[in-house]
C-alpha cells in the first residue's frame, strides 16, 4: 500500500462556486503535492480568495470536492471540519488579529483551545518561540494597534504557524506592504516552510512574491485553472492571457 504522505495533500475536483447568477469558480481543478508552494495567480475578482475560503470551509461550494489529507472538506460535519482546520493555517490579507487582545493573547488563543492539556510554561515557550521566528518577541505584551503593517503581518504569520499546521493558505501576503517589507515576508514564508515542512497555497498578484515563493504557479481565469507550471515556464509562454501577467 502506498504511504499516505506520498499522496497529494490537497486535491480539488470540479469545484463550482457562484454568488447569485455570477459564477466565480466554474469546474476548478488543482492538485497540491506535499511540501510545495502553489501560487494562484489571477486578476482581481477572479475568485482566488473565494477558492481558499472554500478550502478552509468558510464558503460552501455548489458542487465539486476538496480533499485535504484525503478528507473531503465539503462532506465533513462542523466538528470534523474544525478538527481538520487545526491542520490548516490561514493568513488573512487584513491579518485579522484580535484587536482587543495583546499579541501574547492572540497567539495563546488557539493554543489554549486546542491543546487543552498544555501547561502554562509550554504555552509561554511556544508563544515566545513563534514570535522569535518572526523577530518580534519584544512586541509580546503590546496591542495590535501599536504595531506597523509589516509587524502585524509577521505577528499574523506567527499566529498562523503556532498550531504547527501542515498546510498554510496565504491570502495576498504582501499586498499593501512596501517592497522591503514584502521581501521580508516572502523570506519569512520560505524560512518557515523549510523549518516546518509545510505545503502552501499563496494567493497573489505581486509578481515578485510569485517569483520568489512559487514552486508551481496556477493561473485562475474565468473560474478555471487556465495554465499551470513553474514561474519560468509560464513567463516564457506566448499565450496572451498568460503573457499579460508577466509583461
Amino acid at each position: 500500500m502506498e504511504p499516505k504522505n506520498n499522496k497529494p495533500i490537497i486535491v480539488i475536483k470540479d469545484l463550482v462556486k457562484s454568488f447569485g447568477d455570477k459564477v466565480i469558480l466554474d469546474g476548478f481543478n488543482l492538485t497540491v503535492e506535499r511540501g510545495t508552494n502553489v501560487v494562484i495567480l489571477g486578476k482581481s475578482g477572479s475568485g482566488k480568495s473565494v477558492l481558499i475560503k472554500c478550502i478552509i470551509g468558510l464558503l460552501k461550494p455548489e458542487s465539486g470536492s476538496i480533499f485535504v489529507n484525503e478528507d473531503n472538506i465539503t462532506a465533513l460535519s462542523e466538528d470534523e471540519l474544525d478538527e481538520t482546520r487545526t491542520k490548516i493555517g490561514f493568513l488573512f490579507q487584513s491579518n485579522a488579529l484580535y484587536d482587543s487582545m495583546t499579541i501574547r493573547e492572540n497567539l495563546e488563543f488557539p493554543l489554549l483551545r486546542h491543546w487543552v492539556d498544555i501547561t502554562r510554561e509550554e504555552v509561554d515557550r511556544l508563544v515566545s518561540e513563534a514570535l522569535e521566528n518572526v523577530d518580534l518577541l519584544h512586541t509580546i505584551d503590546m496591542m495590535p494597534s501599536e504595531l506597523s503593517g509589516g509587524m502585524l503581518k509577521r505577528v499574523a504569520l506567527a499566529r498562523t504557524m503556532i498550531l504547527r499546521p501542515e498546510i498554510i493558505l496565504y491570502d495576498e501576503p504582501t499586498t499593501g506592504l512596501d517592497p522591503v517589507t514584502s521581501r521580508e515576508i516572502e523570506n519569512l514564508i520560505l524560512k518557515l516552510q523549510e523549518k516546518n515542512h509545510t505545503s502552501s497555497i499563496i494567493i497573489s498578484h505581486d509578481m515578485n512574491c510569485v517569483k520568489n515563493t512559487a514552486d508551481v504557479v496556477v493561473l485562475l481565469l474565468e473560474g478555471k485553472s487556465y495554465a499551470q507550471g513553474s514561474f519560468e515556464e509560464l513567463a516564457q509562454s506566448t499565450d496572451k492571457n498568460i503573457k499579460q501577467f508577466f509583461d
Binding site: L58, F90, Y98
Partner: peptide, 15 residues
C-alpha cells in the same frame, strides 16, 4: 470583528 475578519479568523483556527 465581522468586517475585519476576526470572526472568520476564529472559525479558520477551528474555534
Amino acid at each position: 470583528m465581522k468586517v475585519t475578519e476576526q470572526i472568520d479568523a476564529m472559525t479558520v483556527s477551528g474555534i
